[in-house]
Design a protein around this nucleic acid. Structure first.
Lengths: 342, 342
DNA sequence: CTGTTAGCGCATTCAA
DNA sequence: TTGAATGCGCTAACAG
């Protein structure tokens, strides 16, 4: 038994050696018991007693060194600081913990360099697997990862790996279709940089709906923002100021939706009478806006759970269906921000 | 050099032994170099080369076993899934990472049992320190923690430990004072369960402001909720339906503020003409509400940073000022939800 | 400045 | 079923 002093308190930390001394059993037997092996009933009791008496806890570091498993999963994410990411992380963490894994979170703050640094950090930390929401990362970077990993939210071309994402194209299609069905013909879209996977998919959905309904696309109604609040704000104002403004707008991410709402409030635009709008993500926001906002809601809980489950599966060595591409459906929550026109 | 096969790819993972073979140097020298020690210029080059050639990475598990340091900090939090927590976590993670520590997050979902289980989980994981936003945890539970820890957001009685919180009483006082200064006399408050530290402090601030301004307190105007959306909703409706309803309401947390806004929208109450309101937390929300909501904003970035810094300090063995109590100031953001009356 | 050595705590052979 | 012995990869103490 090792004693040391911390903050003036005597600490006792015991190892299997101490258990061995206490019980007279050998290290092998103890280790076996700890890991669920069968031991003579008498010894089992002896060990149970010893473990509680000495307050024994296995040293996961030592175990990890021996087994080459740290029982931790790294999560690499562009920005922890938004509801979408948080929901996903929360569900990843929960699912993993139920399986004995802990989660190390690395937020790279949308910074390309940090993204790579933190990836290395995680690998160094000997995590057993990594869940990544990629931003700037390339297939080359990914090829350096020698442990199971799964991509979340965004796919990367030419990388054969497990990926969990939502049907962005369909999400967008459904939203635009809804607007069309409500009689809108001039529908603006505020989308993100075409280079971003989700952004380009969402634009495709818009175009696809227009095609299917034989409507002609007016390039003036397609605005490219940068997925942040300010561009949502600016682009909404641009849209309403063009010659023949849209009667409805579809905004393709959360931050830009916020920006649009602020612009709408400031300009005193009446929703849905003067403008119909469909936003993205975050049901909570949709509810406090007046009138409540129709939005495309992403299944964040499922994304998190699925990602965790796939990585757990791979960690068990089950390579079935590799590489697995999971495309989850979004949900169009219809509230009161869309007007039915003739 | 160890070779193994994963997903059909040959993996090479090298240790200092491999470096030793490659360079002809001893383990001691290599270890020293890795840890920033000085070696002969010639050897330095040799090592640099070897390390890149063999793609050497220190095994943090082995290092941790040797040094009894895992270089990870646990964060135990009631709910990861809200803006307040998120901001704090994000800043904790960032500050720690800059100091070489990683962050393991444990979300106990407001569950008393999970709170203890996850605490044990973290301790088992050999984290070097813990940052806790306590909910049900008692001073006894805390006394079992043998490593540095700091409390965040909520203090616990009779526990001498580092704590970072916000001046809740002052926050509340200032908000109520603002309402009083705007001429309001009948001011409702929607607060949380008195047992919760932050809730009772916020109520004290209300009472204190009333006392200082020689206003009499009407118990009908004090409503106790449970910090969730629904109780915010319900209690706002209760408040406006009493005989002599308030002209202003102060809501003391984020979720209840959401509930109030939804109630206000549904009932078609005109803000600020028919009712003045001050909410809590989350500036983002305040901006998208129409009219923009005056709120008490908490310095979440600072809370996270301070908590991380204190634990880093303790980890270095610096016990100066222990136990440290840090009380940060909130910020009353005045927007347009409060009417100035005669 | 460099090399040698011991051992952190555990899991895992292999014998018994 | 149990025990003894070995080593995971690294750091730290010491001797050179």
């Amino acid at each position: 038994m090792k004693r040391f002093i911390l903050e003036g308190v005597v600490i006792i930390s015991s190892t299997i050696k101490d258990i061995a001394k206490y019980t007279g059993l050998s290290l092998g037997t103890i280790s076996k018991y700890i890991n669920g092996g069968t031991v003579k009933e008498k010894n089992r009791k002896l060990l149970e007693d010893a473990i509680t008496q000495l307050d024994f806890k296995v040293n996961e570091l030592a175990r990890g060194l021996k087994t080459s498993k740290s029982m931790t999963i790294g999560v690499l994410i562009p920005e922890i600081n938004n509801v979408f990411s948080m929901n996903i992380i929360s569900n990843i963490e929960n699912t993993l913990l139920q399986n004995g894994y802990s989660t190390i979170i690395c937020d790279f703050r949308n910074d390309a360099q940090l993204e790579n640094e933190k990836l290395n950090f995680l690998i160094n930390k000997m995590v057993d697997g990594i869940i990544i929401m990629p931003l700037h990362i390339t297939s080359e970077d990914l090829s350096r990862i020698k442990i199971p990993f799964v991509l979340v939210d965004r796919a990367i071309n030419n990388v054969g790996c497990d990926t969990v994402l939502v049907d962005n194209l369909g999400a967008s299609y459904n939203a635009v279709e809804h607007l069309i069905n409500c009689g809108h013909k001039r529908i603006g879209i505020i989308c993100g940089n075409k280079k971003i996977y989700t952004a380009s998919e969402r634009l495709k959905g818009y175009i696809s709906a227009f095609d299917d309904y034989k409507l002609t696309i007016d390039q003036d109604l397609i605005k490219y923002g940068s997925y942040d609040l300010q561009s949502g704000y600016d682009l909404l104002i641009e849209l309403i100021n063009i010659n023949n403004p849209p009667t409805a707008v579809f905004v393709t991410n959360y931050e830009m939706t916020l920006g649009c709402i602020i612009a709408i409030n400031e300009k005193g635009i009446k929703i849905p009478d003067e403008l119909s709008i469909i936003g993205f993500d975050n049901l909570e926001m949709a509810r406090i806006v007046n009138p409540p906002l129709s939005i495309v809601a992403q299944p964040t809980e499922e994304i998190g759970k699925m990602a965790a489950e796939i990585i757990l599966k791979r960690l068990k060595g089950d390579m079935q269906d590799f590489p697995q591409l999971i495309k989850l459906k979004t949900d169009l929550k219809i509230k009161k921000s869309v007007k039915r026109v003739l």
